[in-house]
Design a protein around this nucleic acid. Structure first.
Length: 488
RNA sequence: CGGGGUGUAGCGCAGCCCGGUUAGCGCGCGUCGUUCGGGACGACGAGGUCGGAGGUUCAAAUCCUCUCACCCCGACCA
């Protein structure tokens, strides 16, 4: 294995893969498009998961678990939904294997009467259950979330960004009124924005998807969109207002207070392990990862330095009281006592994105201090041993803020208002970034622009104000001011 | 499914065109010793049905045929 990772400027895609594999976040699985999330990557995911789960639970949602397998017929119940997912479903057709000479073959006698699909998302199975659970307005709302794995048999995959199987959470709520469902959809969008910005240090645009880009079966899809280090857009989370579409498909009605029968209103929403990819691509640099402290598996790595084992042991003893204090206050601190050279360890933990590194050697101990390095800025300084425990939380906080600000100013400096299509084309082909443009609201315009430039409408920002704008493509009066970008 | 490419040690590769008997190199790995403040070094050592099947030949990693797998580009993709 060569040292370090491919520089971003040389090949962003190769840099990304290098980072994921060499830092031990994930590895390729044996089946095409699958990945193993290794302990370091899983720990990162669990920190993200914990942050979001706390917010979901404290906003009144409950966790539950629905089956992996769905009757094939369920998918067909909602017309747009089936069209959206049919092409990427794993289908279970048999239940047994049998020996055939030296080989294992599918036992033809075990063919299923009704084939079963592996969930690509759970709306259908969940709504088939909600039908049983909902009779009266008193049964509403239902606010359920599940943490699960799903399978979408995509043709082209990339670690964390698009894998055949991935982990996510999917919320599925049922409401008595359209207003309540819309409020829920927006509440979740705001929780996702908070997760991205306050925990992942990832500035996001919130907006609504065009009909072409919305979820198959939704009335409206809201999303958070982020800019990656190569200026391409990544959809980081979606929140759908499903209206009464799934209630119609599964015939889920309830009795109102005044004894009327009405269809239930629904929402669904999800974020996935793709967020890990978003973190990597928005904060990473040529040395590797730069993890935001709030979700970093290790926040502080301690490197003892000494010519002898004895000196290293002294260094560890020197820092131990501070380590205990930090751990008690919830800081994730580790000591690297591997038998490697200090230089190797510095590079290793920098690649792995640990926010703070403490070096302790004879020189530090003589000064009664420790050397401290920030991964975000590369800054190094010395801190008195007695100040370590109290300054580190503040430093971690500062790193969290700084990563957010760097990502935000990067995005802002690559976001441009454009009103000529010629400029738009060269922006998409050469410069790259987010283009803020007028759009006439037609699917034809959207499709033509996609065909000609590969740029898509990422979202109609919630702050939409098309007054006086003209469509970048047709020149007609703009219906919306939208964000165009090339996306993952 | 179209176009291109690659399969040789855990990883990255050379050898193949022009067949030759013990198949190499770097990294990594093991043991021991010296090192240790920005990717240390030495000695010794372990590790291979050369993707698979068939063929040509005295002889195949190398030539021929078939086959499988994976990667990249495209089409596709909430």
């Amino acid at each position: 294995m060569s040292k370090g990772v491919t520089p971003q400027s040389k090949d962003f895609a190769a840099w990304y893969t290098d980072v994921v594999v060499k830092t031990g976040l994930a590895d390729y699985g044996p089946v095409k498009g699958t990945m193993v999330i290794k302990p370091y990557g899983f720990s990162l995911w669990q920190n993200i998961k914990k942050s979001l789960d706390d917010m979901l639970v404290s906003s009144g949602h409950q966790n539950a678990y629905f089956p992996l397998f769905i009757p094939k017929s369920f998918l067909a119940q909602e017309a747009e939904h089936v069209e959206g997912f049919a092409k990427e479903c794993a289908v279970v057709t048999h239940t047994r294997l049998k020996a055939d000479d030296d080989d294992l073959i599918v036992d033809p006698d075990s063919k299923l009467e009704e084939e079963v699909i592996v969930r690509p998302t759970s709306e259908t199975v969940i709504w088939s259950m909600y039908k049983k659970w909902i009779q009266s307005y008193r049964d509403l709302p239902i606010l359920i979330n599940q943490w699960a794995n799903i399978v979408r048999w995509e043709m082209r995959t990339r670690l964390f960004l698009r894998t055949t199987e991935f982990l996510w959470q999917e919320g599925h709520t049922a409401h008595a009124t359209a207003k309540e469902a819309e409020e829920e959809t927006l509440k979740i969008l705001d929780i996702y924005r908070t997760l991205a910005e306050d925990y992942l240090a990832l500035p996001v645009l919130t907006g609504i998807k065009t009909d072409a880009e919305k979820f198959a079966g939704a009335d409206r899809t809201y999303c958070i969109e982020a800019m990656m280090g190569d200026k391409r857009a990544l959809q980081a989370g979606t929140s759908h207002n499903l209206g009464q579409n799934f209630a119609k498909a599964f015939n889920v009605t309830f009795q109102t207070k005044d004894n009327q029968e009405e269809l239930v209103f629904a929402t669904s929403w999800g974020v996935s392990t793709r967020l890990v990819g978003a973190l990597i691509m928005s904060h990473g640099d040529d040395k590797g990862l730069r993890l935001p402290p709030k979700v970093a598996p290790i926040q502080v790595m301690i490197i003892p330095i000494g010519k002898t084992d004895d000196e290293k042991k002294q260094a560890i003893e020197f820092i131990n009281p501070a380590v205990s204090t930090l751990r008690k206050s919830g800081v994730r601190v580790e000591v690297d006592d591997r038998n490697e050279s200090p230089g190797f360890k510095f590079n290793d933990w920098e690649m792995k994105g640990v926010p703070l590194r403490l070096e302790i050697g004879p020189r530090d101990m003589a000064e009664n201090s420790v050397s401290i390095s920030r991964r975000d800025s590369g800054e190094k300084s010395a801190i008195g041993i007695n100040d370590v425990a109290k300054s580190i939380p503040a430093l971690l906080d500062n790193i969290q803020q700084n990563l957010f600000q760097q990502a935000q100013s990067f995005r802002n400096s690559h976001t441009k208002k454009i009103d000529s299509y010629d400029e738009f084309k060269s922006f998409m082909n050469e410069t790259g970034g987010f283009a803020l443009c007028g759009w006439d609201g037609t699917a034809e315009t959207e499709q033509s622009i996609k065909n000609e430039t590969k740029a898509t409408i990422r979202c109609i920002p919630l702050s939409d104000n098309p007054k006086g704008l003209k469509c970048i493509y047709s020149g007609k009066a703009a219906k919306h001011e939208v964000i165009f970008a090339k996306a993952y």
